[in-house]
Nucleic acid binder design. Structure first.
Lengths: 200, 200
DNA sequence: TTCAAAAGTTGAGTTGTTGCACTTATTGAG
DNA sequence: CTCAATAAGTGCAACAACTCAACTTTTGAA
């Protein structure tokens, strides 16, 4: 069982143990959540299962919701890369659309347990909201990349607007029978607006 | 001191007393919040100030944040009217933009204390989020009106998208030096996209 | 070896929110 | 008018998510 040694600077015993506790907590939490539902599992219970105190738990995760998004670091990098390294000739909104579709489509042939994970998140309001807010935290970074890619001045409100709307699009699509199509239509609106903005 | 008798069906003693307690609670809460800040006032304190029990308080307001948005009923009606009764020749997104600008501009010459109220809401994250979620609850209704006005089939995802984005626009504009201009630019994106969608 | 910082523990407290059992007031029907 | 149903309100205890302060145990390095 060789641990996560993907951390480039080789980490000492200290950090390794810390990471281990963190994972123990997150794993216990996710297992319990999947078994019995997010709202029916208390913090104390998770702490017990991971054999730590509740205070320790909160030193690793600021709030209960964060337990579910442990391995969430650097979706931002992927997001920015999706725009920067988009296929030649593709528009920025189209790249964002494809990225959204890719991120949101994890059911088809992929991981077995990952589907259950998505189901957990999407069916728990507290988690949905938390996840959405996490995405919105990338607005500024995304806006900056959009500005670069389109030659607009950094800080141009149009870039922020596009970034924000793109990150909100999945939420706007929710509730429609065909989520994918709804997403595509939403991005259609953005794409056409963006093109008109550039040419106008 | 003739109370709020604007309720069309004349209300009996019961409902009048209920409304009175409700107002007593909301008033006490707002006063305390303005004096010392939202986070530094506890529920128990508010209940004491209004001379009711915390149980009673929660029978009138489901959560703490709701105390601040007491008189919030029927911003929805105004919103829908702004679209339905827009000046001839004006586009739907433009009507939404104007409505957003109108709602958001309450500082100029208007109420004295109302500025403080806005400051309270905008400077408290919990309240900002709550308010935003309140707006988003009108998405479905707004989408329906947009569909009617534009002849698209009810439930068309493009309508939901426009509705959602329009309601998110103020949030996208926040953080920019010139909020008004940022708002206008965001709606510009939507308007052009919407037009292209119609003509394409 | 020595020592300071980091990780973890314990235990008690605060805060929003709910449940339960109970009292009082209003009302509508007979 | 009477009376039972209903709704408002009370008091209190409890819970769950978090926080705080004081203290012990590693662990990395000087």
């Amino acid at each position: 069982m060789t641990e996560t040694d993907s951390g480039r600077p080789p980490m000492g015993r200290r950090e390794r143990k810390k990471a281990a506790t963190r994972r123990a907590i997150a794993d216990a939490a996710l297992r319990l959540f999947l078994e019995r539902g997010y709202d029916d599992v208390g913090i104390r219970e998770i702490a017990d299962a991971a054999d730590v105190s509740t205070t320790t738990l909160f030193k690793h995760f600021p709030v209960k919701e964060a337990l579910v998004f442990d391995e969430e670091a650097d979706h931002e990098a992927e997001l920015l890369a999706a725009v920067r390294e988009r296929p030649a000739g593709q528009s920025v909104p189209a790249a964002l659309r494809d990225h959204a579709l890719r991120s949101r489509t994890a059911g088809a042939d992929g991981d077995e347990g990952f589907a259950a994970y998505l189901e957990l998140v999407n069916s728990t309001p507290a988690l949905r909201d938390y996840a959405q807010n996490m995405w919105l935290r990338h607005t500024a970074a995304l806006a900056r990349v959009i500005a670069e890619e389109s030659g607009l001045p950094e800080g141009d409100p149009a870039c922020t607007a596009l970034a924000h709307f793109a990150l909100e699009a999945p939420r706007a699509a929710r509730g429609h029978a065909d989520t994918r199509e709804a997403l595509v239509r939403a991005f259609d609106l953005l794409e056409r607006g963006w093109n008109a903005l550039a040419s106008g």
